[in-house]
Design a protein around this nucleic acid. Structure first.
Lengths: 141, 141
DNA sequence: TCCTCCTGTAAATTTTAATCTTACACCTAA
DNA sequence: TTAGGTGTAAGATTAAAATTTACAGGAGGA
């Protein structure tokens, strides 16, 4: 129900891969050490990014490489890969308003039309940031 | 770490108050029935909205009324009243990257500059929606 | 061929956050 | 003075996220 730490871990991994994949084999173990997260979580995240076509993993022997240009990897794409309907889950709605009350009966439909706008805005905000800018940012530290 | 159901409950309460406060005493018990949430949660939410100046509560004998025009009650103000640093908490960052790794050492600062942009965008998105629009929406159902 | 290092994924456990429940002091108006 | 409210704290419950454990299966070097 939130933009989770999975997203920040994914970005961390992508920076790491972008910097080191040329010169060494980047395994889930290595990413686990760098991020401070356990290897299974890393493998799940990498697996989701792989399904989205963002990176590829060498089977058997291990190691991962980026699969598309940095500017095509937007935060929206990353979040979406990690959690397909994250935009819906991001904003919670109380589940059991009273159907006997005029307000309770209609609250879900009223909220949804306002919340749809917020989701759209957030969506374009996330689409406007890509790994390109984030890497530039990293390199200019 | 997300825009919680507390926000949707708050909106529900504000609609309810806006519709019924003229004609009856709106208590936490009543709001509890309409929202399907327990009265203590309602009282906590109402209390937060009161501190923000959004509504006022008649002490002792109970009942609550709106305290300012609908168009001045933006979603941002509501969210902020409920959870003062919700924008920061909304986006999680993995807490323990390795300080020994060049990526790990700098990831927080890199993420924060990108995330700041997202927070700003979301902030203006929430400021663009007020209870005025939401009530119009409710009335036109 | 076999052994080692890696991935992919499932299941159980632990941790953490959110929500609900219970409890009670205090206020106001009838 | 009593009935019906609010405000708030503390503990219990529930739900979600993350970690741990476990293991089958691929690739490549000895």
């Amino acid at each position: 129900m939130h933009i989770s730490t999975k997203c920040s871990i994914a970005i961390h991994c992508l920076i790491f891969i972008s910097v080191y994949a040329e010169t060494q084999k980047v395994t889930s173990e290595l990413l686990s050490l760098s991020t401070g997260t356990n290897p299974v979580t890393i493998r799940n995240i990498i697996s989701a990014l792989k399904k989205e076509g963002i990176l590829s993993v060498k089977f058997g022997t291990g190691g991962t490489k980026l699969n598309c240009p940095l500017n095509e990897i937007t935060l929206y794409r990353i979040c979406n890969a990690l959690e397909p309907d994250f935009l819906v889950k991001l904003i919670g709605i109380h589940p059991m308003p009273s159907p006997l009350c005029p307000v309770g009966k209609n609250i879900h439909s009223v909220l949804n039309s306002s919340y749809a706008k917020i989701r759209e805005d957030l969506c374009s905000s996330l689409q406007n940031i890509s790994m390109k800018e984030i890497m530039d940012n990293y390199n200019n530290l």
